[in-house]
Computed example of a mutant assay.
Amino acid sequence: MTTPPRPRLVYERWTDPAAGEILELSDIDVVKLDLTAPEEQSWAALESAHGYQVATRTDVADVTGGAQWLAGPALIERCQQLLAVCSAGAGYDVIDVEACTRAGIAVCNNSGPGAEAVAEHALGFMLDLAKKITAADRALRGGPLGNRLLLQGSQLLGKTLGVVGLGAIGGRLVELCAPFGMEVLVFDPYLDEVSADARGVRRVTLAELVELSDFVQVTCPLTAETRGLIGAEQFAAMKPTAFFITTARGPVHDEDALRQALETGAIAGAGLDVFHEEPPRQDNPLLQLENVVATPHTAGITVEAARDIAVATAQQWQTLFAGLRPERLLNPEVWPHYCDRFQDILRVLPTSISHEGLTEAHT
């Protein structure tokens, strides 16, 4: 009887060394993908991989040709041993989920561990814009202050928050805003009435949300459904006193339409952590506007979130290679095909029991 092959995991980088430390204790062959090395070396590693913690350097993909290392059809076709592809954090737009599903490859993300960091960042944007904190800072540093009453802000108390996509991040933001007594509206086609009532939010259409909200907060993932979701029509429907905030992905909203809405006073301001091009060029028109507060996709980058995501990432790979069904499986319809391939390649039949269910069974 032959010994099953040792699972091989290829990664580009961890959010924190804790992932590597945990995986060192597992029976998993962990290989670092060096994108500065000759391509042949990188392809040799990937072609032998059973798991791939996908490279997420979308900001340099167009410049360096790094797009070939994202989990698209070309990489999937070339890497025939690949069983699973995972991304760190909630975003998974660097993975072609449909192509993976067709190939029998499981796709996972880690939406929970970074939720606190991103939700706090979103709340920070809300407070900054409403209280004109960055605007006041710019005024103080820019010369004689003049009339400080021109920096009059507003309060969050009693305002209406509209959340587009009530996942882990949006849900945590709702909790953080509870002390402000805000009415919370949610547009999320996957949220049912029972869950909405339990969270104390009201389900509405997108049209209702943008019309009624004082803060429109986008936290949904970038998918075929959400690409271009917020455009000229939605910005035109917002209150002139409303703020647009996004910690999602740039292509969920139309940047030109947002710029026009901000320049014409159709909306009061915007808090942006994401852009169509990242990092954005310094001459990006949005960065020239005084009613914009921006950060370079750093909402989820905190010491705590980096470690939590790394730990969850390592545990997720342990779950996958143990033949258990991962909690954050994004394409559950792949499971039968995935199990067949897992058995053929690693000579072990996976189980439909999740890691969470297994833990409960032993308590």
Rank of each mutant, 00 (worst) to 15 (best):
K32V: 09
C79Y: 10
M238N: 03
T64P: 01
G146V: 00
T319S: 03
A261W: 03
A299N: 07
A74R: 12
S87Q: 14
I230V: 15
E225K: 15
P7L: 03
G271V: 13
E12H: 12
V163P: 06
T295F: 06
S42Q: 01
D93N: 15
R259N: 14
D254G: 11
T313V: 14
I169F: 02
G66C: 01
V60N: 08
G158N: 01
R203I: 09
L329E: 14
I301R: 09
E360D: 12
L149R: 06
L156P: 01
A103S: 13
Y92T: 03
L46R: 00
S26R: 12
G112Y: 12
T2M: 10
G271K: 13
Q343V: 03
L320R: 02
G146A: 07
L286T: 02
E12W: 03
L46C: 04
S213N: 15
G89A: 04
D283S: 10
L286V: 02
A268Y: 07
T298N: 10
M182R: 08
T264N: 12
P4N: 15
G153Y: 05
T2V: 05
A266N: 04
L83P: 00
L156Y: 00
E21S: 12
A90Q: 04
M126G: 07
V348E: 07
A139K: 15
A178P: 02
I133W: 15
Q315V: 10
S26L: 05
L161H: 01
E263P: 02
E183P: 00
D197Y: 07
I169S: 03
C177E: 13
V63W: 02
H50D: 12
R57F: 06
N331C: 12
G269V: 11
C108E: 06
R202S: 13
R249W: 07
L272Y: 09
P179G: 06
S42G: 08
T359W: 05
E356C: 13
L151H: 06
R203N: 03
L287P: 09
H253M: 14
N331S: 04
